[in-house]
């Protein structure tokens, strides 16, 4: 249970890290917080020729506010969780971070590392997708932005090409009044989740939630729903979103949206749950989370 031998480089700049990536031609791994990479090394699941540590690159852990919030790739999950910018502008990320591993793993684990790792059960990639976020990557050819919807290709696989480094993560600030919900089902808190759902409901610009008739429940101008654990990548639940936009949020509408979400999902069963079980979990979790988001009653777990 010790890592294999590897060359170690502490990059001082992004450019140096990219140059090192090129030098090792796909045989080096980027070390950010190490909370996924080091266990994989301990298990000898990976035997890279070199690790390129980006933890000492100045400024790569900065969080900047504005209409588009930017988090440097090396932002520790714990720092994001405690950031006033995140607390105000990215409530969905703030809530989701509470579910990422445990406090001691969040002290070291990073926002960019989790996204680049693209674990299909991870919370941060799910939030990136649900938030219409994007990432900036830099490589020998320069920099480019990749929208979340184009980023996650398969299990542990992103659309970064070899030699590219994820440097920044962007999420649009959620409009004031946005209601968020986040829930996951895992065998124990902090374990890899079996199914996770993320909900963000934004009222129209004047802050109102129109009611077509008294029975239809509040109607939102923007509905964003996503789930993980029901496919090899996080999934945007577009049919359910369209349903809620059109039919409002009374209980029968939420149930119908959850049915639509489950029907659209194509999970793969594994030791943690069959495909049918995951589809069922998605339906139950989504309906429950929508209900508590639209009509909060129970005392929420304080953070």
């Amino acid at each position: 249970m010790k890592p294999p031998r590897f060359q170690y480089h502490a990059a001082r700049t992004i450019e140096e890290a990219i140059e090192l990536l090129a030098r090792y031609a796909g045989e080096a791994r980027i070390l950010a917080g190490g909370q996924s990479l080091v266990p994989m090394l301990n298990f000898r699941l990976l035997e890279p020729r070199a690790l390129i540590d980006i933890g000492r690159i100045p400024g790569l852990d900065a969080i900047t506010g504005g209409p588009l919030v930017t988090l440097g790739a090396m932002t520790r999950q714990r720092s994001a969780e405690e950031s006033p910018i995140v607390q105000t502008a990215l409530p969905l990320l703030r809530e989701a971070l509470r579910w990422v591993g445990h406090l001691p793993t969040r002290s070291r684990g990073t926002i960019g590392g989790s996204i680049a790792h693209a674990d299909p059960s991870a919370e941060i990639p799910l939030v990136l997708l649900a938030s219409d976020g994007s990432v900036t990557v830099q490589g020998p050819q320069g920099t480019r932005d990749i929208a979340a919807v184009d980023l996650f290709e398969s299990l542990f696989t992103t659309s970064l090409v070899p030699g590219e480094l994820l440097t920044r993560v962007h999420m649009p600030a959620m409009p004031a009044g946005t209601r968020i919900g986040f829930d996951e089902f895992a065998r124990r808190h902090g374990d890899f989740a079996i199914v996770t759902v993320a909900v963000a409901l934004t009222p129209s610009e004047d802050g109102s939630t129109a009611r077509a008739n008294p029975e239809s429940g509040p109607r939102y101008a923007q509905v964003r729903l996503a789930a993980s654990g029901v496919g090899s990548v996080p999934l945007r639940l577009t049919a359910a979103e369209a349903h809620l936009l059109q039919h409002g949020t009374e209980p029968a509408s939420l149930a119908a949206a959850a049915e639509l979400a489950a029907a659209a999902a194509d999970p793969v069963g594994d030791a943690n749950g069959s495909a049918d079980y995951r589809r069922h979990l998605l339906k139950v979790l989504l309906e429950r989370t929508l209900e508590s988001t639209v009509r909060p009653t129970a005392k929420r777990l304080a953070s």
């Binding site: 001691p104 793993t105 070291r108």
Partner: peptide, 18 residues
């Protein structure tokens, strides 16, 4: 678990050099 810069952190998933 130890405190690294005041924050509880796992030392089996942290390299000494980090």
């Amino acid at each position: 678990t130890v405190l690294i810069d005041g924050r509880a952190s796992r030392t089996c998933t942290t390299l000494a050099v980090q």
